[in-house]
Simulated scan of single mutants.
Amino acid sequence: MNMEELQTLVTDYLGPFGPLILVGMLGVFLILITLPILLKKEADPLDRLKASTRQEVKGKEKGEKLRNATSRDKLEKYSNFLEPQNEEEYSAVKLKLMQAGYRGKNSVRIFHFLQFALGIFGLILGGAYAVFISTQGDVETQELALSVLVPGAALYLLPRYWVTRRQQMRQEAIQNGFPDSLDMMLVCVEAGQSLDQSILRVARELAAGFPELAAEYEIVSQEMKAGKDKTSVLKDMAERSGTADISSFVTVLVQSQQFGTSISDALRVYASEMRDKRVMRAEEAANKLPTKMTLATMMLTVPPLMAILIGPSIYAIVQNLGSG
């Protein structure tokens, strides 16, 4: 079989752009084959020595490393490929994952690995679908490109959407349970317990109803027991939760500690404000409901009503025209 016959066969199966599609798929296949080889390539000892020297210099300049390597981590060798090397970007991704409830040491690395793996898998699925539809008939190049790129982009963005959704759900759960936790903490403080004991007791009581908020209180209690500064512990809690209510609560406790005022009085005032704020949120949601239901009401009510009112008249007109 010569080249002309091969080109004719490819054109018959894949359409007029068959050779271009075949070359593109061959390039993607070669990239997928060579990528693991490049990632597993052993570094030159001299290059490793230079890289370690640079890391030590950067570590001294920055004061700390972005992450701590562990010998058991299978993704460690791909860390430069799977992790942001910019400290600000790394901190932003880590904070987002932490607010979504993923506090693992390798959460950033696993997140980027899932994005990369799902993106490649989507491209493979899109390429297979493009080959299938091209065999069914003539297909435009734009449609083929979209059939390949859309699944890859969708699966690549899926982990980011999942983390964002988890972050919103977790913040909403913490926000819903926070007023009740303040009431419990106020009762514990007025009963004679310290703030550390009150936080631990509230964490135990909220574990069944609000596990996300109970986990945050548990972390605060454990860090206080370990001897960490109370102010920094509370600020870390506000950063992990990502809610404005807890940030304001931390500010109130820090100011109460600095100025020497009563913690119970501060808790009483703030708990009352949080209860009022929860009622206002419920009223706001109730006031939005009629507006959201207007479109659905029109779509589900107006067509049947028009059919009931106008249907008999239309039927009578048709009957009269037919008889005439």
Rank of each mutant, 00 (worst) to 15 (best):
R109E: 07
L35R: 09
T11G: 05
P19Y: 03
G63M: 09
S194Y: 06
Y13N: 11
T291Y: 15
E64C: 05
K94Q: 02
L123N: 00
P151K: 01
G192E: 05
I317F: 10
L125C: 07
S232F: 06
T294V: 15
G137Q: 08
L321F: 15
N80P: 06
I219Q: 08
L6K: 13
K94Y: 02
L46E: 13
T251Q: 14
L82F: 04
L95N: 01
L39E: 09
V28I: 11
N176E: 14
V187K: 13
E212P: 06
I31K: 09
S313G: 14
D236S: 14
D236K: 10
L186Y: 04
N86V: 09
K77C: 02
F132E: 10
Q85G: 15
M98P: 03
A285P: 00
L206W: 00
R268I: 05
A153M: 14
T8S: 13
V108P: 00
G137F: 07
L14W: 04
I199L: 08
P312M: 04
G311I: 01
G122W: 00
P179H: 05
A154H: 02
K228P: 01
G122K: 03
A191W: 11
S91Y: 09
H112T: 01
V254I: 13
E190C: 10
L118I: 05
Q99Y: 02
Q167K: 14
Q55R: 15
E88K: 12
Y13M: 12
G104S: 13
D196P: 04
M185N: 07
D265S: 15
G24S: 09
L114M: 13
A238P: 01
Q7S: 09
E76S: 06
F116I: 07
G152A: 04
E4S: 14
L114A: 07
V93W: 02
F116W: 10
E283W: 06
S52N: 11
A214D: 00
E89N: 07
A286V: 07
R166Y: 02
A130V: 01
Q257L: 15
Y78V: 02
S313C: 04
A154W: 04
V220F: 01
A307H: 06
L32S: 10
R281Y: 06
D183C: 12
L213P: 03
Y90Q: 04
A154V: 15
M280K: 12
S262I: 02
M280P: 02
Q193G: 03
K65T: 08
K60N: 08
V279K: 11
E4N: 11
T291R: 14
G27F: 14
K65I: 01
M293W: 08
